[in-house]
Simulated scan of single mutants.
Amino acid sequence: MVAAVSGAVQHIVVMGVSGSGKSTTGGALAARLGWPFIEGDGFHPEANVAKMRAGVPLDDDDRAPWLRALAQAFARNQAAGQGSVMGCSALKRAYRDILRGGAPRVRFLHVHGSRALLEERLQSREGHFFPAKLLDSQLATLEMLGPDEDGAVVDMALSVEDQVDQALRLLGLRA
Rank of each mutant, 00 (worst) to 15 (best):
L70D: 09
F74W: 03
D165Q: 13
A8T: 11
D165Y: 00
D61I: 08
A103C: 06
L173Y: 09
H128K: 11
L171V: 08
D155F: 00
L139N: 11
E143K: 03
F129I: 09
Y95F: 13
D59E: 13
N48Q: 07
A132N: 10
S18R: 01
L145H: 00
E161P: 00
F43N: 10
G7A: 04
A103W: 02
A30H: 03
Q166M: 13
P65G: 10
K133G: 07
P45C: 09
V154K: 01
H110N: 11
P147M: 01
D150H: 13
V154T: 03
V164A: 00
E120G: 14
F129V: 06
T25Y: 03
S89I: 05
R53A: 14
V9K: 03
G16Q: 02
M156Y: 04
A132C: 06
Q78R: 11
N77H: 14
R105E: 14
A8W: 00
A79E: 12
A80P: 02
F129N: 10
A152I: 06
R115I: 11
G21T: 04
V164R: 00
D97Q: 15
A90C: 07
M1I: 05
D136C: 12
L173A: 05
S89L: 07
E119W: 08
V154A: 03
D136V: 14
V9R: 03
E119D: 14
G151Q: 06
E119R: 15
P104L: 02
R125A: 12
D148G: 10
A167H: 01
S159D: 12
G113K: 02
M86D: 05
S18H: 03
W66I: 12
L117W: 00
A140H: 10
K22R: 09
T25V: 15
A152K: 03
Q10N: 11
Q166F: 00
P65E: 08
M156E: 04
I98Q: 05
A94N: 02
N48M: 08
M1A: 13
A167Y: 05
L145N: 01
R32N: 05
L58R: 02
Q72M: 14
L58G: 07
H128F: 11
A50N: 12
I12T: 11
F108C: 02
K51E: 07
